[in-house]
């Protein structure tokens, strides 16, 4: 290397945070660990998934948990053609909003569809659980298109 070359080095900043989740998200995470997806009922009767700690209309604390289905409908999506290292899958996938059966709001997660042509708004998808679950959103490895589609 010539003496005039400019030096370059990797500079990695990492903050190893642990975040406390509180009683509502804590119960949601506990459910994921146990293979269950739980939402919470709002004052207007809607089931919010993921659960909110406070009512979106009245701001009251919420505590009425409701288990919802493990399959649902894609309400919108974006295809990732070149996944980056922090992404959950190494192959192309979709970020998607998924409204699970029994829920009135959509959950942001990943659809492993193989190819962009397999993705469609209103398609049905089903949870694929991770083998070893610890109580975090990645306990859902991804969603996959329901069979027969």
């Amino acid at each position: 290397m010539a003496d005039t070359d400019v030096l370059v080095a990797p500079n990695i900043l990492e903050y190893p945070y642990t975040r406390t989740v509180g009683p509502v998200l804590g119960r949601f995470m506990t459910g994921l660990r146990d293979g269950r997806i739980e939402g919470i009922r709002a004052s207007d009767g809607r089931v919010l998934v993921p659960p909110a700690e406070y009512d979106p209309v009245t701001s009251e604390s919420l505590d009425q948990f409701v288990e919802v289905g493990q399959a649902g409908v894609v309400t919108t999506w974006a295809w990732v053609t070149e996944p980056r290292p922090p992404h959950p899958l190494e192959r192309p996938f979709a970020w998607a909003l998924i409204r699970l059966d029994g829920a009135d709001t959509a959950l942001l997660h990943v659809v492993d569809a193989g190819d962009e042509s397999k993705m469609a708004t209103r398609m049905r998808v089903r949870v694929r659980w991770r083998d070893h679950r610890v109580g975090e959103i990645q306990d859902i490895a991804c969603f996959v298109p329901e069979e027969g589609q």
Binding site: V8, A9, P10, N11, I12, L13, E14, Y15, P16, Y17, T18, R19, T20, V21, G26, M29, T30, R33, P86, G135, E136
Partner: peptide, 14 residues
């Protein structure tokens, strides 16, 4: 579950 790991990692080239 009471907490989750939420690391923030920033990879720069200086």
């Amino acid at each position: 579950v009471r907490s989750i790991r939420a690391p923030a990692r920033l990879e720069y080239r200086f």
